[in-house]
């Protein structure tokens, strides 16, 4: 069972970025302007520690979110998609004229029991 998924279109872009940059990570942003968007960076670019929750792996890329933010998100399932757009963050897909976005749905009852009552994150 997974908390996160990725669309084929978004996965193709991730693979394209992996060819150029090597190992990558996703970090979910919060706050204004370009916030609430998943951002992709070279592995090691961003300092991560126990305050970042690991949500899973998509297309061989680890996906993280700040723990405080995760508390408000943990009842939802996330699918990473891609759209045309121009974000002003440091996320690596921006120069392609594309932008990762997150599509959310509520966890099913089974998923919710699996993830949120057994202390798994």
């Amino acid at each position: 069972m997974q908390r996160i998924a990725i669309t084929d279109k978004a996965a193709a872009i991730v693979r394209q970025l992996q060819e150029k940059y090597g190992e990558l990570i996703f970090h979910q942003s919060g706050g204004c302007c370009d916030g609430s968007s998943p951002m992709i960076f070279e592995k090691g670019e961003m300092y991560l520690d126990e305050s970042d929750t690991h949500l899973g792996k998509i297309e061989n890329v680890d996906f993280y979110m700040n723990q405080d933010q995760f508390e408000y998100w943990k009842h939802t399932h996330l699918t990473i998609d891609i759209t045309e757009g121009r974000g002003s963050s440091f996320s690596l897909e921006i120069p392609l004229g594309l932008r990762f976005i997150v599509i959310s749905r509520l966890l099913t009852e089974d998923e919710n029991t699996f993830f949120n009552s057994s202390q798994k994150s």
Binding site: Q28, S29, G30, M39, N66, F90, L92, I94
Partner: peptide, 26 residues
């Protein structure tokens, strides 16, 4: 763009301060 121009500006060792308005990850 952010990764191409924003990052070199924010990480430059020849500047003395950065002021930013935006989101938490950046």
């Amino acid at each position: 763009f952010g990764p191409e121009a924003g990052k070199p500006l924010a990480s430059s060792s020849k500047i003395d301060k950065v002021a930013f308005t935006g989101e938490t990850t950046t």
